[in-house]
């Protein structure tokens, strides 16, 4: 059985950073950049590093170029056909999740987990209600069920432990109300505590 882990969430939640770190930590065989919504801050930007770690990177044809065409390469199918374990990093919101719909049948033959990454400091997911709405929208568009929430609450370089903990509290509350498992809290390595998923900064904020 193939194992496919999907990372979704509100845009700006940090799902790409989490997905790339997760791929490296779990030594998956491939990571697939399926972001067709926003051409910036994408998995493909860390391609060199991922390849060095032996992880295959599959990305839209023109990812990280001057051209914004969300055309997907046929290699995406290889994730379902031949990879032992793979990560799908999709674009933000339900708009980004729509793309999953076209692979729907293929998920049936895989062991699929769909994580929703939450940053409670993003306005649309700042309370339980917002998180629930985002979950529904993503499930609708992707025709997949969310299998757990990840707390990745942060304010970039202004992040403190308090932010991370406040986020964890809210995301756990959402998990309770939505009857979803809480997967983990992720935080940049310098802030992460024991038991949390530490992140290295792999996705550059571009050159600017």
């Amino acid at each position: 059985m193939k194992k496919v882990t999907v990372f979704t969430g509100h845009f700006g939640s940090g799902k790409t950073e989490v997905a790339v770190n997760y791929a490296i930590a779990n030594k998956v065989s491939a990571i697939c950049d399926l972001d067709i919504v926003n051409p910036y801050f994408r998995t493909n930007d860390a391609k060199k590093l991922l390849n060095e770690k032996g992880i295959k990177v599959i990305a839209p044809n023109f990812a990280s170029t001057n051209v914004d065409i969300p055309s997907l390469p046929p290699d995406v199918y290889s994730v379902f056909a031949s990879c032992e374990s793979a990560i799908l990093d999709v674009g933000g919101d339900e708009d980004g999740a729509t793309v999953l719909g076209r692979y729907r049948q293929l998920f049936k033959d895989s062991e699929t987990e769909v994580f929703m990454v939450v940053n409670v400091f993003r306005p649309e997911t700042s309370d339980v209600e917002g998180i629930a709405l985002m979950k529904d929208a993503i499930e609708n568009a992707s025709r997949l069920k969310i299998s757990g929430l990840i707390n990745n609450s942060n304010l970039l370089e202004l992040t403190t432990r308090e932010h991370i903990e406040r986020g964890e509290e809210l995301v756990k509350k959402a998990c309770g109300e939505l009857s979803l498992p809480f997967i983990f809290t992720s935080a940049m390595r310098e802030y992460a505590k024991e038991g949390e998923f530490p992140l290295n900064k792999y996705i550059k904020m571009a050159q600017w």
């Binding site: 067709i36 969300p70 055309s71 997907l72 729509t98 793309v99 999953l100 719909g101 076209r102 692979y103 729907r104 049948q105 568009a141 992707s142 025709r143």
Partner: peptide
């Protein structure tokens, strides 16, 4: 447009 319709090619 399977990708943006969110449908497999056959469903599309």
């Amino acid at each position: 447009c399977p990708t943006n319709w969110g449908l497999s090619p056959v469903e599309a």
